[in-house]
Design a protein around this nucleic acid. Structure first.
Lengths: 101, 101
DNA sequence: AATATATATCGGTATTTCCCGATATACCAA
DNA sequence: TTGGTATATCGGGAAATACCGATATATATT
């Protein structure tokens, strides 16, 4: 777990926004299940992209950044990649900040 | 409290190192009290700079970055500026990561 | 095979960060 | 005042980041 990489991933307003949206996908992507079906809490790139209002390539890259930092996990199903939060990473980070930083 | 600014401040190995050193100044700057006297847990720029091995200007800027993010506080006494951790900021950040990020 | 859709990757420009040396400022001492 | 020490700020080159449009890849459909 590279601390600097984690903090860099968090050093961007859009990426923080995405993480926040993924806390409650049903709330922030109400039409996701309709168009994408049950996805176990993961949200596909396109929905995130449209909500963020940046280009597809940018959001795809941002999600890779978050994934490399361990903050989200990706699972490919068919042509979609569903991204979801890795809650354990946030717990660990919280503990790190509280006691070891 | 600007979250992005905080995470940017933490996105650098040297700055993380400094914060860690400031957790226990007596341990990491054993000769500080001898040369600088009792400083209420704060450490002057020069000692931090020598331990970090970067230039004076770089470390001075890094400390300003940490200060603007609220992670350290500065107090000037004579020609020295003593920097110390703002523990409350770390508590707040830990809670933020745990519940709101 | 051909086409369409979802995502990833590539190449590029503008901005930011990293870190430096030089200089400015503040304070202290003689 | 002169000089010395501690810190801050300025100007800059190299590297990283923020985005973009274009293209490549993977999968699904016909």
């Amino acid at each position: 777990m590279d601390q600097v990489e984690i903090f860099k991933a968090l050093s961007n307003k859009t990426r923080l926004q995405i993480l926040n949206w993924l806390k409650d996908p049903e709330l922030h992507f109400p039409d996701h299940k309709v168009s994408c079906g049950e996805t176990n809490g993961g949200v596909c790139v396109g929905h995130i992209q449209r909500k963020a209002g940046l280009t597809q390539s940018t959001i795809s890259e941002y999600l890779v950044v978050l994934q490399r930092a361990g903050l989200v996990t990706a699972s490919r199903v068919g042509q979609w990649t569903y991204y979801k939060r890795n809650e354990k990473a946030f717990e660990d980070l919280s503990n790190l900040v509280a006691s070891e930083l």
